[in-house]
Design a binder for these strands. Structure first.
Lengths: 194, 194
DNA sequence: ATACTCATGTAAGCTGTTACATGATTCT
DNA sequence: AGAATCATGTAACAGCTTACATGAGTAT
């Protein structure tokens, strides 16, 4: 069985396999309060992919309508389980993407006045505070057998918290006319003192 | 003049207007050692976009071949300058995307043995160390009139450094059997002690 | 001589989003 | 009665990457 396997494939496999049997709708909702912060997925992607994985023999579908409302519950097959475990333990380079338009603006901020520069930093901070809020609201119940959901949640919280602090520091450096973030001498790799 | 304006549009406008880079090739090279870490761009994207922006009246092209080798030097028009400044100062929400397959694996790591879990964390750390290396090598010359290139460079360095430390901490927590990253009591928002 | 860098571009394809369509059930 | 939620799906499109093609100049 040779099928194209993307990270989204593994997202679905993991959501169904690790978390139990699921419908497309349940996966969508769970993604929106958990992995969304590092791996999003839209319904236009989930539903076709579930079908594709069923055809590939990695998932089994059993229709379980509730009343007259259609509903497809998926389960991971043995082969699907293997694929999932293989992916989890393979040490190969995984995709790592990062697109931050706020940072891009900051990169070009030399062309701006000091007031405008400070505004750019403030906008960046606001965005990270909003992200922080979103993650905070998605508080996962702490269960000792599901601790990694909690760990990745903390990661998001701590990371964005760090960025917010970084923005605050830069903001005050700019306001007080300090050369921002400059390391002493030529020691560019030294830890930044905050 | 109504043209679709993406962040990549502004990347090119900024590279030509603020950084004084003029040909598509020069932009590509500069992107690869600077904004790549938060905004990448491939030649298959840059060259058509440059043409599009010329048609839209935001850039001017002047052919300046070197010997028999073709070469197109671009300049930002007044209108392009306006669009660039407008984008830099507009406080509207900018795109902020993050896709981290390593984190996704960590999210599902409950299904693994302790040894395998540690391997996932190590792989994640290795990836961030590689990113750190890439950024470090791209050391920008520090010029007082272009300090924001330096600031964003430091951002990448500091951020990935933070993540590497986070991974190290998690790794040792797992090895020593501590419940990783758990906050005391119900105070989930408390600063993590490291 | 040959490999690398400079320089520009195109075509195919993948991934993902947005917006919409459909219809049932439950809540207020 | 009407709004929200449950549930599944499709079509169009945007954005980007990969791989390729071309050819000139430069370094070894």
């Amino acid at each position: 069985m040779t099928t194209r396997l993307t990270a989204t494939t593994h997202l679905l496999l993991g959501m169904i396999g690790v978390k139990g049997r699921r419908t497309g709708y349940e996966i969508k909702r769970l993604v929106d309060v958990s992995t969304r912060f590092f791996w999003a997925a839209s319904p236009g992607q989930i539903y076709p992919e579930l079908k594709r994985l069923e055809d590939a023999g990695l998932l089994t579908r059993s229709p379980q309508p509730q009343g007259g409302r259609q509903r497809n519950v998926y389960t991971v097959t043995d082969e699907g389980e293997q694929v999932l475990h293989q992916w989890l333990t393979a040490g190969d380079a995984s995709t790592f993407e990062f697109r931050n338009e706020g940072l891009l603006k900051l990169f070009f901020a030399d062309a701006l006045t000091l007031e405008e520069q400070i505004e750019v930093v403030r906008a960046m901070r606001a965005q990270n505070e909003a992200a922080l809020d979103g993650i905070r609201k998605a508080t996962p119940p702490f269960r000792p057998d599901r601790k990694f959901g909690y760990i990745t949640w903390r990661y998001g919280l701590d990371l964005h918290g760090w960025v917010v602090d970084w923005c605050k520091q830069l903001e005050s450096d700019l306001i007080e006319g300090r050369t921002p973030l400059q390391a002493e001498g030529t020691d560019l790799d030294a830890e930044r003192t905050r």
